[in-house]
Nucleic acid binder design. Sequence first.
DNA 1: TGGGCCATGAAACATATGTTGCACATCCAT
DNA 2: ATGGATGTGCAACATATGTTTCATGGCCCA
Lengths: 291, 291
Amino acid sequence: MAQAQPKPSPLNELCSALPSLPMRLQEVGRFVAANDYDATTRSMRELASVAGADPASFTRLAKALGYSGWDELRAALTEARRPAQGSPFSGRAKSRRGGPNADVKLVHDKLEAEAAGLARISANAIADAARALHTANRIWITGFRSCRSVAELLTYQLRLFRPDAAQLVGGSGPFDLDHGAFRADDAVVVIGFAPYTLVSVETARAAHQARATLIAIADTISAPMAEGADHLLLFEAASSPGFFPSLTGAIAVAQSLAAVAFTLGGAGAKRKLEETEGRLAEMSQYFVEKG
Amino acid sequence: MAQAQPKPSPLNELCSALPSLPMRLQEVGRFVAANDYDATTRSMRELASVAGADPASFTRLAKALGYSGWDELRAALTEARRPAQGSPFSGRAKSRRGGPNADVKLVHDKLEAEAAGLARISANAIADAARALHTANRIWITGFRSCRSVAELLTYQLRLFRPDAAQLVGGSGPFDLDHGAFRADDAVVVIGFAPYTLVSVETARAAHQARATLIAIADTISAPMAEGADHLLLFEAASSPGFFPSLTGAIAVAQSLAAVAFTLGGAGAKRKLEETEGRLAEMSQYFVEKG
DNA sequence: TGGGCCATGAAACATATGTTGCACATCCAT
DNA sequence: ATGGATGTGCAACATATGTTTCATGGCCCA
């Protein structure tokens, strides 16, 4: 870290040194470059056997590249592969003093990053969770701070076709919680990201204790409300440059959840939806173009 | 537990098993979940020393999860982490042809469409609108039905650094409106899509009459609240397959708006934000990892 | 051809690794 | 209080790991 160097990737220096290496070392070197993930995880002997080479070659390769041994080379590869934590835009953090268009650029980057984040959401996990929602007797939904908007949206959409089932926890204030009402055949959805609100964690635990199906929508696998969750739906809160965590992913997850749950509901859900929509329209809350 | 699934992520089953584990194993398990990359690369003893735990705990954790030992758990984690070969989307679209996985496909398509929708949002328009927000004396925000969640999120984020300026219209109920309070140096944000709620249109008109700066976030140029709007921010509500309009775009717009407004606020906004965050933390509403 | 040089594979080595047995602490039911 | 069961740290264990050494075989130059 103390180096002023712009951090040369071990893989790059491997490739550039390749031609000047003995035949066997070249083979091994190419193998490492092509399978660098396995190089960091499997053992030297394993690699040797699938590469059809001698274990010693790996040690020799490392030394030929200036490392003290294979261990050190592998450590370098491992660090190079380490997922960017914290600042995904560290590389792109250019001097934003560019001009009057800096704001436009910020928005642009942000949207781009969020679109990429959506791609990383697991459709499988959502479908599974939706099935759990479908079979649940009642559905409780929790979220605080900015996640409250996500919780409210999910509640709203679910209530469109399951009006008596979906319920926002703490609907009449953050201290009016319904933990005691959780039953084993209920589903509880907890939405949150770091820093985690205490109440949301407590809600998750209460759900778990009540043996209700717990669905966690969070930014990390290690989120406290993910503990004991039957379904864990991840989204990227920090994916976008900016200062507040992003909720775009969480919203997308919530909407997909509602959509799948709706399709699972079949004709009954559709009927309920039309009924609800009709009631809303009846209250004449809609604007109609005159003429 | 449905065992028919092809790949239950080891991390997920770890998280769900956590609560039923003994104390020390929970600590170790949490550590593994939080540092899964190191878990696959560093050795058991290394992990133990930085986690402040006994090496044996890792073996025991693995066995408690049903693995034959730490090596097998680590192998599972390693495989789960293996980089997807190919592009994130095309690569994963394997044999998703209809069948029982129709739900998965639905979610997949939905997310893809929404990601594409984000790309069509105008960064320029958002930056302009943010400047208007910045110069406004007070900021009123409106949205009903599912758009209420967007309105609440925007309000929440703006209040983080402009607590006295941002205000949700009808905060104490949909009929407690503040139309009379609009002033010429205020900004009014109206969020909505078809079918348009009557109140939101009335709010837009009231804002216009008060000569306040009107910012409309809507799905169409012809949206009634867009009439007379100083800034019109479009998002795609119907872009995604499914049955409910999508709010992902609206959320992205709202967040970007808040982000740019924050940067425009400069040091003062930053100070206010820290102040607010501090007050929130002081109320000890956050969950802190013990250890 | 002969002699030095280097690349290469196999086996021996020291060591770090994952595991397991044991002793002690802790908790719960009797 | 007592006895049993369970969780936890420590240390010894068998072994897989990375490294080194040595013998072999090919190559180039005198």
